[in-house]
Design a protein around this nucleic acid. Structure first.
Lengths: 252, 252
DNA sequence: GAGTGGTCTAGACCACCTT
DNA sequence: AGGTGGTCTAGACCACTCA
């Protein structure tokens, strides 16, 4: 089963063989791999070697281990597409926020946990909002869930002079979310900027988003502007295996 | 050094401790970690345990191992920002293509290798281009380098009826690149769509892009449209640690 | 209680890099 | 030659899950 003369490490050959079985469908999504002890027999390798092979499959996100139960072929993840139209006024009309609108478009049961606090703007936030460092900002720290799985983290920061006395400083901002409340108080949104990149998750993000080891996150920093000024910085972290962002723009 | 009664696995405690030293700057970027044998002594653990700790840091991208040399703290990377304005007609006027425009904006020495071939559209490409599967498409396979480092891979596909007899089927498309040639032959671009996600690189991508272990890539699929039809599908792969995408759009 | 994955040990040999 | 990381073995005990 394993060619010891090829120069390719045994754990790699075993991982490749298992990967082949998964990709060919011999091991169906959701089904368990043979137990590590069984694999020790079939490949005639030690258990650490088998574990290293399985670990490779785990870090590449192909399988998920469950302590005491087994190692299972990960079902392909559903990709949610985020289009910028989610930020349109019409989309706000019916929903509490952009995320709830996404949920209405897909078909998952959404829920959001929010914590609100006030802090001083650090250098980066101050720069993006074009205020002095140290200016008071309202921070809305959100955890978004779809069918009880955490799929998105978001931290919004708004200069406090815009939010004082509005529901933006409350946990529940009401229908249409933060953007609707801003526009009601006269701060009509003019445009958005988004900065998109990707990186490996922190340890906290990995456990919160239930990411397999070695699975990256997409980072989006959105800055909302009125005609006059920047009014919000929103730092979002998305599980890359579950999201695709969609942008559309005219050729000029 | 390691608390065996805390319930936290030793390899995790060791990894956390090393991570702390890196983040606090005690282990500077580019400097080597103590060798695995030294770590065995300092933490009083077996070598496999030490290796597991180091592996955790590697898969999270904090350090890079070099066989025979040591394990090194990964230096932070320089970020290039890609804005959609790079696709404007005015930006095309002076440059050979979008990538050369980016280079002019930053200050790196750019070079591009191109291979051109003709193939039949697969299902996905046919769907995006709104043609029948099997339709002949011109494929432009590009490797972009900045200061001799490969930083971006791109594969463009265009229906062949648009390109026959034009420099688009040549390696050198001339000033302004593919988009300029399309517009010259009457196919005036109307809008672009971009689909952005991220994933771990394939083995080939990892070696081509010289990615450290555990470093993700950003994927961008851009579809270019005239008023009538889709004219190009461009699949790009970018090193996530070197790129940030910038989008801007009006609130509506 | 039996089976599963999770952690850990104390070695061994190899391939690679530097001096 | 001597140090580095890469691979591998043959065990051991623990924590978790399920019948």
């Amino acid at each position: 089963m394993v060619d010891r003369t090829s120069g390719v490490p045994a754990y790699r050959q075993i991982a490749d063989h298992l990967r082949g079985q998964i990709e060919s469908g011999k091991l169906a999504p959701g089904s368990p791999l043979p137990s590590e002890r069984e694999l020790v027999d079939t490949y005639d390798a030690s258990r650490p070697t088998i574990r290293e092979a399985v670990k490779l499959l785990r870090t590449s996100g192909l399988v998920v281990a469950q302590h005491g139960r087994g190692v299972f072929v990960r079902p392909p993840s559903v990709v949610t597409r985020l289009a910028r139209t989610r930020l349109s006024r019409s989309a706000r009309a019916e929903n509490k926020g952009a995320f709830m609108g996404d949920a209405a478009a897909g078909d998952f049961a959404p829920s959001v946990s929010v914590r609100v606090r006030v802090e001083a703007a650090d250098e980066r936030v101050a720069d993006l909002l074009n205020v002095e460092p140290g200016t008071e900002v309202v921070v809305r720290d959100r955890v978004m869930r779809a069918n009880n799985d955490v799929v998105q983290l978001a931290v919004s920061r708004l200069p406090r002079d815009l939010t004082q006395g509005t529901p933006i400083e409350e946990v529940d901002t009401g229908s249409g979310g933060v953007y609707a409340r801003l526009e009601e108080s006269g701060h009509v949104l003019d445009r958005f900027e988004e900065f998109v990149s990707a990186r490996m998750p922190t340890v906290d993000e990995q456990s919160l988003l239930q990411l397999p080891e070695g699975s990256p996150v997409i980072t989006v920093t959105r800055v909302a502007y009125t005609a006059d000024r920047a009014v919000e910085v929103n730092d979002m972290v998305l599980a890359a295996n579950r999201y695709e962002l969609h942008y559309e723009f005219a050729a000029t």
